[in-house]
């Protein structure tokens, strides 16, 4: 059962590298923000998987705070792109 979570976390990290490709080559800035948002979502999922894997349940609280803070950063970058800041 533990190996299952390990595999899932590793595969999710590999998937996140796919989003990193879009972050690098993205033609415009909104594309890059979309890719960064995707990576943030995947990071939250990886944190929750790792918390069960290592039995460090404090990681889930870290994941909640990470989700909310990444939301704030996304909003600020979006405001900057939209020219309202």
């Amino acid at each position: 059962m533990i190996g299952m979570f390990m595999t899932a976390a590793l595969v999710t990290v590999v998937i996140a590298f796919g989003a990193l490709v879009r972050l690098i080559i993205g033609p415009t800035n909104p594309d890059r923000v979309v890719a960064a948002d995707t990576i943030n979502t995947l990071t939250v999922a990886v944190l929750i998987l790792l918390s069960v894997l290592y039995e460090q349940f404090i990681f889930i609280d870290v994941a909640i705070v990470y989700a909310l803070l990444s939301f704030v950063s996304t909003l600020y970058i979006a405001k900057h792109i939209g020219g309202e800041l």
């Binding site: 415009t28 800035n29 909104p30 923000v33 979309v34 948002d37 979502t41 939250v44 909640i64 989700a67 909310l68 990444s70 939301f71 996304t74 909003l75 979006a78 405001k79 900057h80 792109i81 939209g82 020219g83 309202e84």
Partner: peptide
């Protein structure tokens, strides 16, 4: 729940900003 709500609102913000730019 935090993930679902923030993703929906964040994608709306990005789409609006992209159209404004």
């Amino acid at each position: 729940f935090a993930l679902a709500v923030t993703n929906a609102a964040g994608s709306h913000a990005i789409a609006r900003a992209a159209h404004k730019s």
